[in-house]
């Protein structure tokens, strides 16, 4: 008997992602997080009303990878720019995508105040414990003792203070509706990360306030590790200092689920 072969699409590039190849280094998890965001935007059918605000840093070219109306903000100012975009068109979905230097160092005032105001935007924070684009200098999230281009003897916390824990800090602000930390170093954490992205957008779609996800992300190039060793490094070194979990889930978020 002749066997019937039927072709069936089981996976395809999300409509929200562009066909452009990315400039990200091999093994960097920016691309993976882009993909998750693109999938969720498709699933929620919000592509045609979503506006992305790119940072300065490795993901500065984010607008080349998303099929979304996009703005490229000044270093650290994405939450302010997103505030302007959202306040004049509250029916749109506006998100910022920022690295650790952009958000937690030069842009600390802008992210704090977006959260304090309960700005109805979503922020994806990519914490890879290093300045990637400038070639591997110390970030506000670099771990104690971490060797970088500007801490060649290892981060001296006596001099620079301890790494900043943004999910915990923003969770402490009344304007924050949703603040969680996720990772993307294995299948389970990737699945959890995607669920959180969905929740964060749904918070915004409900007009429920500021939603924030911190992602632990790898930087094999500047950490000097292979892609798979870099994923191990997240699990072994970052997760203990930056525990994964939900830091603020306001009651209204539970109603959305």
């Amino acid at each position: 008997m002749q066997e019937q072969w039927v072709e069936q699409t089981v996976y395809q590039r999300p409509e929200s992602l562009s066909k452009n190849p990315t400039h990200y280094c091999p093994g960097c998890t920016h691309g993976l997080i882009h993909k998750l965001i693109g999938e969720v935007i498709d699933e929620l059918a919000i592509r045609e009303r979503t506006i992305a605000v790119a940072p300065v840093g490795c993901s500065v070219l984010l607008y080349n990878y998303f099929e979304l109306d996009s703005a490229e903000a000044a270093h650290g100012r994405a939450p302010a720019m997103a505030t302007g975009l959202k306040r004049v068109q509250p029916d749109k979905i506006v998100f910022t995508y920022q690295g650790d230097g952009d958000l937690a160092s030069i842009g600390i005032a802008e992210i704090m105040w977006a959260a304090i105001r309960g700005e109805n935007i979503t922020t994806f924070f990519i914490n890879n414990a290093i300045y990637g684009m400038t070639g591997g200098q110390m970030a506000p999230t670099s771990l104690p003792g971490q060797v970088t281009g500007s801490s060649p003897l290892g981060r001296d916390v006596e001099m620079t203070g301890m790494p900043i824990q943004m999910a915990e800090i923003l969770a402490g602000l009344p304007g924050t509706t949703y603040a969680v930390r996720r990772s993307v170093h294995d299948i389970r954490t990737i699945k959890d990360a995607k669920k959180a992205i969905r929740t964060a957008f749904r918070v915004q779609m409900a007009g429920a306030g500021f939603s924030f996800i911190e992602f632990l992300s790898s930087c094999p190039t500047n950490w000097g590790l292979t892609p798979s060793r870099a994923l191990d490094w997240i699990r072994q070194n970052m997760v203990p200092y930056y525990p994964l979990g939900d830091y603020k889930v306001a009651d209204i978020v539970k109603e959305l689920r």
């Binding site: 903000a73 302007g84 802008e110 704090m112």
Partner: peptide, 22 residues
Amino acid sequence: RVFLQAESELAAINMVYGAASA
């Protein structure tokens, strides 16, 4: 219409940038 007292002039001009982009 929209009025917002920003946290700084730095934030204010970037909010302006966002709204102008819209």
